[in-house]
């Protein structure tokens, strides 16, 4: 299915949770902020929140250092 990820079209597997998407992108779930259709998703819901066709996903990633 197709989603919009950070403004770009992307094809992902059917029936993907937010956690599946983060794993497929090789991102560490604890170090990102995920917004799904303008709602911020809390980390404890990443595995139970599914992504649907045409969803709009923003992922902001942080790397360590400060």
């Amino acid at each position: 299915m197709n989603i919009t990820l950070n403004g770009n079209n992307k094809s992902i597997q059917e029936i993907s949770s937010v956690l599946d998407l983060l794993k497929s992108l090789e991102l560490t779930p604890e170090t990102v902020v995920v917004e799904l259709n303008t709602t911020i998703i809390q980390p404890d819901s990443y595995d139970t929140t599914n992504i649907a066709e045409d969803d709009w996903v923003e992922i902001i990633r942080f790397v360590g250092g400060g």
Binding site: T28, E30, T31, V32, V33, F62, V63, G64, G65, G66
Partner: peptide, 8 residues
Amino acid sequence: FDDPVMKA
């Protein structure tokens, strides 16, 4: 912060 978990 230094820690990326706290940044997010």
